[in-house]
Design a protein around this nucleic acid. Structure first.
Lengths: 231, 231
DNA sequence: GGAATTTCTTAATATTTTCTTAAGAATAAA
DNA sequence: TTTATTCTTAAGAAAATATTAAGAAATTCC
């Protein structure tokens, strides 16, 4: 399992550093921002699994930032505040924060709450995946949540690798992928020397997808470069 | 709207009284118990909307009580503890507690957390009510309220685990569930390494459901990915 | 407290996928 | 046209994944 990334947003450096130590100790990946705007930038750039957000900050405060983040991202947010009046606001439904801790806080408790929220998010994600994720290419239909591929009425059975390669090309229609690139994307490993593993897979996919593998409708060969699905 | 009833379980009278004052002030109805067994009695007698449960108590401690309560009741539980070591245990999934506060605590924060949990429970309840308790898949009938499963006239006896797995797949027809996801959803625990517990259960279900387990009609294998019931 | 049931673990077997190899075909360049 | 390069195809070995069976451990029920 990959390390989860946690974004700490606090203008007080010592607090951020303290939290960082504890989280890293638990095997989390940590990035930091010192105000709301920076936080928004970081989120755009990196895949963040949880945000710890201080309410009191110069510029865009934590509550505003929280609302802003929520507009585009369902990532779990834990808010920190020293003011009692904030509690109700935060745990109410309006801000969209998932949990709250009052300052000064016990770092162990924060870590436990972080873990708890991440677990919750994972479970929720499972349920969310229900929403079908459909890719359509002419009469070729790819459903990434049910792992189904069909052409018209005919159901095509693809192996996991074949499926991944097809999805990669289908999600990026028009783009040409070199053998090397495909290998890196699908296998998540570096590509060493030229075996033709990828080619063999491409052929298998064509065999299953195409009526005439010689004249493929979907996966086209770009000579000397790679493969693509035309736009 | 009726006043919500909150059960406070603590052997220290002063703490219970303190919490009571704050909660009553917010319009909640409060009842009290001074140990785990008493709490179980109260729950049987009254309709309780939330429980505040101290971990450290003579006799049955809070953690045991929490697990015991959860067996029969999905009511939200907030646990109180002075010991750091408890945090992880409580916020982990195994006890079934919904939230935690460390002692000494800020009563305002506790009240806010109470309100937050009650809101959450209401939402959850709404969502639950929508789920049909009769699932039909061709001639397979699953009744989630009576825990009955039948195929045509034949009644199938499934164990609790088997039943849960089947319902998970049946409620989400078409969707593929990985071994890991099944484990997380049914066991409510994190999935560590690859034992094949889930597979064995799948096989048992097939044995009971299918005429030819080799060619399953209901639970299909999606190679390298997981299992599903086709739509 | 003991029997029955359920759940989990282990390991052997079966199946499917993935990779490797190698030979033949298509394409581009000389 | 010839040659070198790149791509396609096929077949079988290796690796990964799934099924099955049997028994141990835990739990439930009486």
């Amino acid at each position: 399992m990959d390390k989860e990334t946690i974004l700490i947003v606090d203008d007080e450096k010592e607090i951020g550093d303290l939290i960082e130590v504890y989280l890293k100790n638990e095997g989390f990946n940590v990035i930091k921002a010192s105000n709301g705007l920076e936080a928004l930038e970081e989120i755009k750039e990196f895949k963040v699994d949880l945000i710890i957000l201080d309410v009191m900050m110069p510029g865009m405060d934590g509550l505003q930032a929280c609302i802003k983040i929520r507009e585009s991202n369902p990532v779990p947010i834990i808010m920190l505040s020293a003011k009692n009046e904030d509690i109700d606001k935060i745990l109410g439904l309006s801000t969209g924060a998932d949990d709250y801790m009052s300052k000064p806080f016990n770092p162990m408790e924060l870590v436990a709450r972080v873990k708890s929220q991440i677990r919750r998010a994972k479970r929720l994600n499972g349920a969310m995946a229900l929403q079908a994720n459909l890719i359509e290419i002419e009469d070729l239909l790819i459903n990434t949540s049910t792992h189904e591929v069909r052409i018209g009425e005919r159901e095509i059975k693809l192996t996991p690798r074949e499926f991944d390669i097809l999805v990669l090309l289908a999600r990026n229609r028009g783009m040409v992928f070199s053998i090397e690139k495909i290998y890196q994307c699908v296998w998540n490993e570096d590509f060493y020397e030229s075996d033709n593993t990828v080619m063999v897979h491409i052929r298998k996919i064509r065999e299953k997808l195409e009526d005439e593998p010689r004249k493929p409708r979907f996966i086209k060969t770009v000579w000397g470069v790679g493969y693509k699905i035309e736009k």
